[in-house]
Design a protein around this nucleic acid. Structure first.
Lengths: 246, 246
DNA sequence: CATTATCGTTTCACTCCATGGATTTTTTAT
DNA sequence: ATAAAAAATCCATGGAGTGAAACGATAATG
């Protein structure tokens, strides 16, 4: 546990995180052993979380509660581009028929913010709110390429040299490519979203299995994602200006 | 505060809820006065929440963090019909061009689970994760009409007699109607989603301002929503059967 | 059907950890 | 430059969270 943090809070979050990972109703005993805490302690915390509707108790089995929705919706609208991007993501998915992702960058880490899935049976698997490994994703590289030297230092791990070498290409093309680096058999293209102060804040990507996404398609899909990213960037920029000038 | 609840937890949630309501970066002082707690206490709680990425600290201003996304996504998939319903909601919105809502019922309360907005400028305003007043919404009435006597007692407030009188009509038609009871100038139709054990678990609705949603359209939209609700009900039913039989 | 095992729930004495008033540091406004 | 306000830090205190143990309910076993 980090210094200065309140113990119950960190315990409560590890309990909720465990429930979220398992995605099924769980008993007190199982949770207690999973998070290495006494049953009574876990029970009391679950009770308190239930009072807040952060978890629900269905006859001794616990699952997450609806308050999570409320908080996540607020987070989404704070991010600013989640709602703006939605229709663009939809049309991008319809044009490519492949899975489309939206990411946010927050304090050195990269999170899945939204996704629209491919209609095909074979498709990429990801989890909203999950952390993503920034170096291996096309969306991550597209973002890093726009970072200043200072911002690159903020990251928890140093950027691998082979990724740095890609930066100039990414900037000239407007999109980054991932050829099975993140996952065997999967190809992605991604482009960065820039906020009104000129800072890279997120990214959009299209992912597909290589057999549906051959090298010949990279340029086409690449231009589509960078077009979407630019559209979102433009919209959030003008929106902020609107608010400021009023 | 309810008996037996852990104080810091309830405090932490009131802080997060306040941030979620305000939907803007907030300072410690403002939050402290809003939730009526000493600054130092609020500061320490925010610090702990930040360590969990439940809030973010941007130079003294706090906002919600990305963990909320992760928890909410898990809740959505636990509900079971949120993902299944998404494509149906989309086509319902496209057919009606009006705002479509998805609700969940949890322990006596009704929550907005998802929405797809009308493309028109004039449209209904709602908040995902917010509680909704079950008696005045078409979706709420559609759900109540399917409840057993016991389930009706589980509610926090008794059902008004005028709503009870509507039940038989709702059951024969398959959908409920709200003629400006919830909000002046707004008409809605809603239908219930039933889980594999036969329990009403949620509802779908279409809402529009009366000038775009005249009485002549009620039957058409009503049949559309009940069709969607039935499709979702059927899909979650057969999915559960699949899992069981394997 | 009795027995055992397991799990959710409750209890309570102990103690440790969250508390909040006061202080210091930083930022913003004048 | 100076003042004002807000964020961040400190620390003695006591009440709040803790967890071992007990309880009661339910399911599994022979």
């Amino acid at each position: 546990m980090e210094k200065g943090t309140i113990r119950v809070l960190s315990r409560a979050f590890s309990i909720m995180t465990y429930i979220a990972r398992e995605k099924r109703p769980l008993g007190v005993t199982e949770i207690a052993s999973a998070v290495s805490l006494p049953k009574a302690t876990v029970y009391r915390i679950l009770d308190s979380l239930e009072a807040e509707r952060a978890v629900l108790n269905r006859g001794g089995e616990y699952e997450l509660g609806p308050v999570t929705l409320f908080l996540a919706d607020a987070y989404r609208s704070q991010v600013g581009f989640a709602e703006v991007a939605r229709p663009h993501l939809l049309s991008l998915r319809n044009e490519t028929k492949e899975t489309v992702h939206l990411f946010v960058y927050e304090k050195g880490e990269f999170y899945y913010l939204d996704k629209i899935e491919s209609p095909y049976q074979v498709r990429m698997h990801s989890r909203i709110g999950g952390r993503a490994s920034i170096f291996r994703l096309s969306a991550g590289k597209a973002l890093l390429a726009r970072f200043s030297a200072e911002e690159l230092k903020e990251l928890h791990e140093p950027v691998p040299p082979e990724v740095v070498r890609e930066f100039s290409d990414i900037l000239t093309r407007g999109y980054a490519v991932d050829d099975e680096q993140n996952e065997q058999g999967l190809r992605c293209v991604g482009a960065a979203i820039i906020d009104s102060r000129g800072r890279p804040r997120g990214a959009v990507s299209v992912s597909a299995p290589v057999y549906r996404f051959p090298p010949e398609l990279v340029e086409r899909y690449g231009k589509l994602v960078s077009g979407v990213a630019e559209a979102v960037t433009r919209e959030i920029g003008s929106f902020e200006k609107c608010v400021c000038s009023s």
